[in-house]
Design a binder for these strands. Structure first.
Length: 463
RNA sequence: UCCUCGAUAGCUCAAUGGUAGAGCACCCGGCUGUUAACCGGGCGGUUGUUGGUUCGAGUCCAACUCGGGGAGCCA
């Protein structure tokens, strides 16, 4: 008899009822009385367990009755309707084979654990309800991202993870080197001689694929990257990790408005896709992690995101009557408290803040006609904060060169980036989506360490 | 990096400066439809580390380590 996946049974029970069925999985709990017992079996294919009923007619009844949690089993029996209220059907066991024993010391108990404790057993936590749900949704969300872009004929670009340009400018970088730290080669000036390093120059892990993605954008028109990103920043918050994944679309013949339309459609697509394809997981989050989650996500799918210029946002905050720890002033970047106030109190939905002062944004963002602001946008969402940062890119060569000078950057480091503006440069735009922040938003989990299988954060790279 | 709170049994938490406890887990027994099963009994501790104050420290003080929350940096 071929084994079936528990998901198949749940999705199509009628074709299995009154039929012989074989399943394999891990014990979540055993409840036993004198002559019979129940096992909750989870086979990983589905969020929910299959209830196994077994009794003394099994030759190994006594052994089965004493099994520890997480023992691996294969069960053959007949699928029958269940008299119990909590499950529509159950498997009446005819034969139970132990595939792999567990022990009483198994750390995951049949009770609610704190997320902090589960983080210390990251190798076992995928077996818990919460992480079973989180990582299945993470997988679905990744698939939704590819589907969204592929359906629109975007080309998926694999930008480099090791980068030779130290000019990405998005944050502190991790050095990649094969030099012997105990015997560093020095040049005549006494500085480290990177010409003897593996790449013959300084190399780092990427902090963004954007600049490279732009090169493909100006060849394939619409492209996206989706891959790991590294930031060596000493950030100790529930929203930052040293290694995280980012989605970075880049679209040609497009301006900031096109960029925002794309971001909004993409987010709505991913939310809809996960609600549709992981209803059990989403229901679990809604009950145990974040009450009201589903209602909020559905509200977002059905509402238009707010578009608010930075200048309007400043005025709105100044006239709000609210007292803030940090003063609100044109020219100064919005603080977290301001962003939260806008998205959580004023609008209660995602808000694009656009057209920031040029002095507080990156050099590559397109200068607006007012000469004071750039065509940038941040998408703020309730509970998570900034989830997307994007802009229209400066396509005018002479303006871009001036911006490099203003920022004290060296042309030579950007020669290929400047080339894009010489040979058929066109208006184009893009954004970066923090994938983990999306998962946090989607699941209601409020610490980034709990949406990454093995999180890397300051002073922490266990497993 | 800064501010703040915390660390006691495997887990979640109690304990006026004066004999370290409970629930769950685990072990033993009971129970013919359970649902984080239930009922009875049992096992379980260098109170994060180091030093200090005190007749006496889980409790007070200092430093450190780790964790939570907030801020900055950002996605």
């Amino acid at each position: 008899m071929d084994g079936v996946m528990i998901k198949q049974i749940y999705r199509n029970p009628d074709s299995f009822l009154q039929q012989p069925v074989k399943v394999s999985g891990w014990v979540r709990t055993v409840r036993v009385s004198k002559a019979f017992g129940f096992i909750e079996l989870n086979d990983g294919s589905f969020f929910k367990n299959l209830q196994i009923v077994f009794d003394q007619t099994l030759e190994n009844f006594a052994e089965i009755a004493k099994l520890s949690v997480s023992t691996a089993l294969t069960v053959e029996g007949e699928l029958v309707e269940s008299p119990g209220a909590k499950q529509p059907f159950e498997l009446k066991a005819h034969r139970i084979v132990i595939e792999g024993l567990s022990t009483p010391e198994y750390p995951l108990q049949k009770k609610r654990h704190s997320l902090e404790f589960l983080r210390t057993i990251a190798h076992l936590r995928p077996r818990s309800n919460t992480f079973s749900a989180v990582f299945r949704v993470r997988s679905l969300a990744a698939n939704a991202i590819h589907r969204f872009f592929q359906e629109r004929d975007f080309v998926y670009v694999h930008t480099p993870i090791i980068t030779g340009s130290d000019c990405e400018g998005a944050g502190e970088m991790f050095r990649v080197t094969t030099l012997d730290f105990n015997n560093l080669p020095l040049d005549q000036a006494g500085n480290i001689d990177y010409s003897q390093d593996f790449f013959g120059k300084e190399a780092n892990l990427t902090v963004s694929g954007q600049l490279e993605a732009e090169t493909f954008c100006l060849a394939f028109r619409n492209v996206y990257t989706f891959g790991p990103t590294f930031r060596a920043e000493n950030s100790n918050t529930p929203r930052h990790a040293a290694e995280f994944w980012m989605v970075e679309p880049e679209i040609a013949f497009a301006d900031l408005e096109d960029d925002m339309v794309l971001a909004e459609e993409m987010l709505k697509y991913i939310l809809s896709y996960c609600l549709e394809n992981a209803p059990e997981e989403m229901e679990f989050f809604n009950r145990f992690i974040d009450q009201g989650l589903i209602k909020r996500l559905e509200h977002i799918i059905n509402s238009d995101f707010v578009r608010l210029s930075y200048t309007e946002a400043i005025g709105l905050l100044q006239n709000s009557g609210q007292t803030f720890t940090y003063p609100v002033k044109w020219g100064v970047d919005l603080q977290t408290e301001h962003e939260r106030f806008l998205t959580e109190q004023v609008f209660k939905k995602p808000v694009f803040v656009t057209d920031y002062p040029k002095d507080i944004k990156a050099f590559y963002m397109r200068v607006n006609d007012d000469q004071r602001t750039v065509a940038a946008m941040d998408l703020l969402v309730p509970g998570v904060g900034e989830i997307i940062g994007g802009s229209q890119r400066e396509e005018r060569l002479e303006v871009l060169e001036q911006r490099l000078r203003d920022f004290g950057l060296d042309y030579d480091d950007y020669w290929w980036y400047l080339d894009l503006r010489k040979y058929g440069g066109v208006k184009h735009a893009g954004f970066g989506l923090g994938f983990e922040r999306l998962i946090m938003y989607l699941t209601g989990v409020n610490n980034i360490r709990d949406v990454i299988p093995f999180p890397r954060t300051v002073k922490s790279a266990e497993f």
